[in-house]
Design a protein around this nucleic acid. Structure first.
Lengths: 201, 201
DNA sequence: GTCTATATCAGGATAGAC
DNA sequence: GTCTATCCTGATATAGAC
């Protein structure tokens, strides 16, 4: 069935992007990766840009799933722990995670020069930031919405920066995780100081 | 003279990268930008990869110069202020800065897939982080070296993340600057809590 | 050192059969 | 829906004159 192949192509494209980057994506290679002909790729997607566009959606869906999917079970046990876990999910040596992070980084970098990709990227990131600020809100219910959003923005920016370094081998995984964990700690301390009645200044 | 043209080609290449990215670099366009023929470009550089390699060196040199060059004059007046200024230098709408940031981001993204580039990038970043942790040290002389380095690592990661968002138009300049400023404030607060004898816990 | 002209080729995209 | 075969553009790289 068609939808099946289509999905295979997207998975293949994601793998290719993770290996060679958006820049290095060859339609031929995507086809080979999915075990189909190039013509079929063009049957399912308008052109190279179309492949990219749909692959981005695919990736951000998948990322969303493994970021917000897990918590469901252990949620409410310890919001602080959940929060930390969700941020660290991006730093794992599992191929699926590595692939997703790499592809996400690529899309980001590409979006700088490609206005079309920006919309999709912006939307995906807005959702992500929203989810994250909710999670932070669960730790600090007293914090104002804008304060939560700003924390989420800083944390996601830091995460993306660290992720790039990790993926290019400039920062060992453990160190990246530690820096991320501390960045969170730093943010939470800040929120605590600004929302608790006890302000030392 | 030859060296002159060579430099012009590098400047041109940097501009092209800033406009279209590493992937979008066309040797023809570099030549046009520098006002020379393609053949001359190949006379000075082995091939496309060679152009890229030398351009990236060129860019990281230039970045280093305008990051650490300025402070010299106003230094020591107010270390905290200097520090903030140096971090915000990357967020300006001047074409030179925008171009360098864009090219640097590209360099980073490309390095994920190109081991050769990593050396140059790693070296440049190590210098940057070193300078930054010194600057932080001037604000908090009591902080330990590793603590300073970690702060510098987090801050540079955040900066790079924010920079990418700004450059792709997903974050207005003013907001990016504000988030960066706050990220610094958050870090400094943290260092203060951990180095001052007065610890509230 | 620098140019004009051109060889060469990779890779995106399509035609048409099944 | 899927394949094989092929076209064609645009980009890298070189030859050879000045």
């Amino acid at each position: 069935m068609g939808a099946d192949r289509r999905a295979a192509i997207l998975r293949g494209a994601a793998r290719v992007i993770a290996r060679h980057g958006v820049r290095g994506l060859r339609v031929t290679e995507v086809a080979a990766e999915a075990g189909v002909s190039t013509a079929l790729v063009y049957y399912h997607f308008k052109d190279r840009a179309g492949i990219l566009h749909h692959t981005l959606e695919f990736i951000s869906d998948r990322a969303g799933r493994y970021t917000s999917g897990h918590p469901r079970r252990e949620r409410d046990s310890d919001p602080r722990r959940d929060l930390e876990r969700s941020l660290l999910l991006e730093f794992q040596d599992r191929p699926e995670v590595r692939e997703n992070s790499t592809a996400w980084g690529e899309l980001q970098a590409t979006a700088v020069f490609d206005p079309e990709l920006r919309h999709a990227l912006a939307a995906a990131r807005t959702v992500w930031i929203g989810e994250l600020s909710c999670a932070i809100g669960r730790v600090h219910p007293a914090a104002s919405a804008p304060a939560l959003t700003e924390s989420a923005e800083r944390l996601t920016a830091t995460l993306e920066g660290l992720s790039t370094r990790w993926l290019s081998g400039l920062l060992p995984l453990g160190h990246a995780r530690e820096l991320m964990r501390d960045a969170l700690a730093v943010e939470l301390t800040r929120l605590a100081r600004h929302t608790t009645p006890l302000v030392f200044d």
